[in-house]
Design a protein around this nucleic acid. Structure first.
Lengths: 192, 192
DNA sequence: CCAGACAAGAGACGGACCGTCTCTAATGAG
DNA sequence: CTCATTAGAGACGGTCCGTCTCTTGTCTGG
């Protein structure tokens, strides 16, 4: 029964390993994921894994990166600030759900400074959205400093990290209507 | 050299174990803390640990709880809303620093729903502060819904969880002056 | 087309730590 | 004083780590 088919190499093998890692993450969760289980699932040896990644965290990070589409690639453009921000938050919530709460928690616990890697991209997206809103005259130009710009995504991220369950749509609406929009329309914080 | 001094029991032994756990946390960090190292440091056996706590997370949680003073015990009262909120945030930042970032990350990754345990107490503190501010006429009564009430502590917590370093005073000021105060004084969000 | 470099597949290895179990002797309760 | 309890000490099987070795398929340069 030994299917001595072909011996995979390079990118093909790497893709198979990352797929196996992703499946194992879903089956066992981050905390119970072992290198041996991944190697078995990918039908290869542990050495092949260690040749490419130094430890579990790096492997999982690579697997997640290979699955997650970058949000900054197309910035939502609904023609209205409120709709844009809600769209961004919706995508964030969806991506979080795809990755899975315990995977993210596990990575945050093990990887030094995972923030810049996964999180800071959202700031640029919000920047773009706010500039377009200012261009339409929806809000005064330069109304929002850095902190207010990232406020919606920061609040959602906080919510996701603490609750570890799906974030209801009503929470997104609350963040936008009760916190963010009042700040950028009514009166801006100090520009610093 | 076998100092067969006395055999500790009950609360005395428990305190010694929690002390040892706390020391081991500082020496090895959460991820490298082992039950055997704690038992050795407390000069006892593993069984004694397992008799009291089911796993590492429970033990560490107990050790942290035994060291951390509850914030809600005395609510700051500076006579001014801004000062009160800054005081609360300052205490939070200090407590976070005392516990240590990686301990908190480790616990969050392993314990199901640690939020209510460690975090929700802050909401009550903020509630009290806002009620007193409304009593002084600083802000309209009922100006802040749940989301805005907890906004400052939520933002600080988000900052602490992502940066894993000490939070500078300027960040606290930013949260209060640029985000929180404008929201409760200028115009309140929908009360929902 | 061939030889040799390279890396995949497979598994053994020592080590760390887990969580359980056993045995003894100290200790507090009645 | 007697006895139930439990601390102290360590052995145990098990899992997984990260490294090492060995064979063998596969790609590449001459």
């Amino acid at each position: 029964m030994n299917e001595r088919a072909v011996r995979r190499r390079g990118p093909e093998l790497e893709a198979a390993i990352l797929d196996a890692t992703w499946e194992e993450l879903g089956a066992a969760g981050y905390m119970n994921l072992t290198m041996e289980a991944v190697a078995d699932r990918a039908r290869t040896g542990k050495q092949v894994l260690y040749r490419r990644w130094h430890n579990r965290a790096e492997l999982v990070l690579a697997a997640v990166r290979s699955r997650v589409v970058s949000i900054s690639d197309d910035v939502p453009d609904t023609g209205e600030l409120r709709g844009d921000v809600l769209a961004v938050l919706g995508r964030m919530a969806r991506r979080y759900h795809d990755i899975g709460p315990d995977v993210l928690h596990g990575l945050m616990a093990e990887v030094r400074d995972i923030g810049p890697e996964f999180f800071s991209a959202m700031a640029d997206v919000m920047e773009t959205i706010l500039q377009r809103a200012a261009g339409r005259g929806e809000i005064p130009s330069g109304a929002a400093g850095r902190r207010i710009t990232t406020l919606p995504v920061d609040l959602l991220r906080h919510e996701m990290l603490l609750t570890s369950g799906p974030v209801p749509e009503s929470t997104l609406v609350e963040i936008v209507d009760d916190v963010f929009l009042p700040l950028v329309t009514c009166r801006a914080g100090r520009p610093r």
